[in-house]
Design a protein around this nucleic acid. Structure first.
Length: 506
RNA sequence: GGCCCUAUCGUCUAGUCUGGUCUAGGACACCACGCUUUCAAUGUGGUAACCCGGGUUCGAAUCCCGGUGGGGCUACCA
């Protein structure tokens, strides 16, 4: 490499959530695309916390955002908790910087103080809309003289700072949407700060993106209309313009912006429901992007390898939970059993089926019996191919943890059997099981024995297996009886069969 | 109201730039069948879409124009 080669401009992108709520699906998706864009090109991804609105910001949300991002594996290179060369990464800690540029703009007469009250502006806007005009600021305070200013100040009015919007066409090429054109006359002089110490969004973004050397601004398309405002300020400040890419929004099934009213919208909600982060990531990326092949499963590294912003869609996508569920089930099935068990244990604890008594030791809440990891693993194996999301688990396996099963005795009866038939069939299997050694109480062995019995005595599969299964589970849908018997163990298995028989006799 | 974005199965989408190979492909969901003691998983098959109207062209999902639908923005929020 020649020493005189110009250094290639570093790719730096960011997400800039405001800590006024949990990390939202939409924000996470924007973060993912930024992350993939950066990582696929050796760039840097930064997290910036936009907490200029102190009223609505809360540190607990900053923490939560960081945690959710971490859980998803969307790792940033610089952020509030990972220092870098362009920090600090919270807007509330960058006030000096904004002030400096605010003063510059004021001094150069590219911004001015506006004394209009919110009420005055409101009525003005309404009137303009009524007349079918774009609701732009009238410019009433654009050229105030000293006496007028003094008068307003004496009235006790608190001014805001407005940017003097030059009248021009602003054209930029969006990486996703193509060439976009705006007329600033329709925008007018926008407010950029409440005062020197409290900048407003559009201004703070411009300063931060420049001072953090952001090369590409990739964000939701709800920001398209902010872009000309920001470019106008960039031009006034003499900054270089970053490249823009506006990604389509994700919508709820009713085609409106995803919100609380539609149910879960926070990443943390999905985590709590037992969605796997890999599945969620895989799902989210497919709303708006696709590899142009039939491949549907992607690891994070594969995504990095295959991602291209040119493959992004232009239209909004609707959040389809059915597909997420399917994907999550697929990921669960492919998961290593020990790992899956680790993930599942907190859900069993949360529903109080088991309680932790020590390191790697639990006890069954209903019976006080101890249970170890390997036993839990067997239980998870039972449901691995049935699970859609982890918090469905407890309901599926609770029959294993109960002291006694309660169910309708009619459930024991297979098709046209009589109660006596069922008792007889249960007795046959009971005999075989009673003769089986405790250490041979293992599903393959049991299956072999019982199927042999069925064949020899011509008992019928359904007639034998259905009552047995119900006796052991109390459920009309469950895993096979052999698997259940192994987990239950000889004593409980026999006990449950006896219970079923007495239930029928009653 | 104004400005902007957008439009292929119910949903996610391929195909649109470079018109014919598209009687429009894949996936989810749904339905049927097979396997099966039940559920699940799995296998096979099926239903299902180019928003509408003009134009250009031998030929349009693809190009052009006009509608319509959906979405976003229009704050002293971000």
């Amino acid at each position: 490499m020649g020493k005189n080669m110009p250094k290639k401009e570093e790719i730096r992108v960011r997400i800039a959530p405001s800590p006024s709520g949990y990390l939202h699906i939409g924000t996470a998706r924007t973060a993912l695309f930024n992350y993939l864009f950066a990582k696929s090109q050796g760039g840097k991804f930064v997290l910036r916390i936009e907490d200029t609105d102190l009223e609505r910001s809360d540190e607990k949300f900053t923490k939560e955002i960081i945690e959710s991002l971490h859980w998803l594996g969307i790792d940033y290179d610089e952020g509030p908790d990972i220092d870098g060369p362009y920090g600090p990464y919270r807007q509330s800690e960058r006030l000096e910087t904004y002030k400096k540029y605010l003063e510059q703009l004021l001094k150069e007469d590219k911004a001015y103080y506006c004394f209009c009250t919110e009420e005055e502006l409101e009525t003005e806007r309404e009137a303009m809309m009524k007349r079918g005009e774009p609701p732009v600021y009238s410019g009433r305070c654009a050229n105030l003289n000293e006496a007028e200013i003094k008068k307003f100040l004496d009235e006790g009015r608190k001014p805001v700072i407005r940017f003097r919007m030059p009248a021009k066409k602003i054209i930029f090429e969006d990486m996703i949407k193509g060439v976009l054109e705006f007329d600033t006359k329709l925008i007018g002089d926008i407010t950029i700060a409440k005062n020197l110490e409290t900048p407003l969004y559009n201004f703070a973004v411009v300063i931060d993106d420049e001072t953090m050397k952001i090369s590409h601004v990739i964000r939701g398309e709800d920001h398209i209309s902010n872009t000309p405002k920001q470019i106008a300020m960039i031009l006034a400040l003499g900054f270089p313009t970053p490249k823009y890419g506006h990604i389509p929004l994700t919508l709820a099934p009713d085609r409106t912006k995803l919100s609380k009213r539609h149910g879960a919208t926070a990443i943390a909600d999905y985590r709590a429901m037992g969605y796997l982060s890999e599945a969620l990531l895989n799902f989210i990326v497919f709303m708006g992007w696709n590899p142009k092949t039939d491949q549907e499963f992607f690891t994070k590294n594969e995504l990095i390898k295959h991602f291209s912003i040119a493959n992004m869609n232009k239209a909004a996508a609707i959040f389809n939970i059915e597909k997420l569920n399917w994907l999550n089930g697929q990921y669960i099935r492919k998961m290593d059993l020990s790992e899956l068990t680790e993930e599942c244990i907190p859900h069993l604890e949360k529903t109080n089926l088991i309680g932790r008594v020590g390191d790697g030791e639990w006890k069954i809440t209903a019976t006080d019996e101890p249970i170890i990891f390997d036993q839990l693993k067997k239980i998870i194996a039972l449901e691995q191919e049935r699970l859609v999301k982890l918090n469905d688990l407890s309901e599926l396996v609770s029959f294993l943890f109960k002291r006694e099963l309660t169910y309708d005795k009619q459930l024991l009866i297979w098709k046209k059997m009589t109660a006596q038939d069922v008792i007889n069939h249960l007795s046959e299997t009971e005999k075989i099981l009673a003769k089986t050694d405790k250490k041979d109480f293992e599903k393959e062995h049991l299956e072999e024995k019982i199927k042999k019995l069925i064949e020899e005595k011509k008992l019928g599969m359904g007639e034998t297996l259905w009552p047995l299964r119900v006796a052991l589970t109390g459920l009309k849908a469950s895993p096979p009886p052999f698997d259940v018997a192994e987990i239950l163990g000889k004593d409980k298995t026999l006990q449950r069969i006896a219970n079923a028989k007495s239930l029928l006799e009653a």
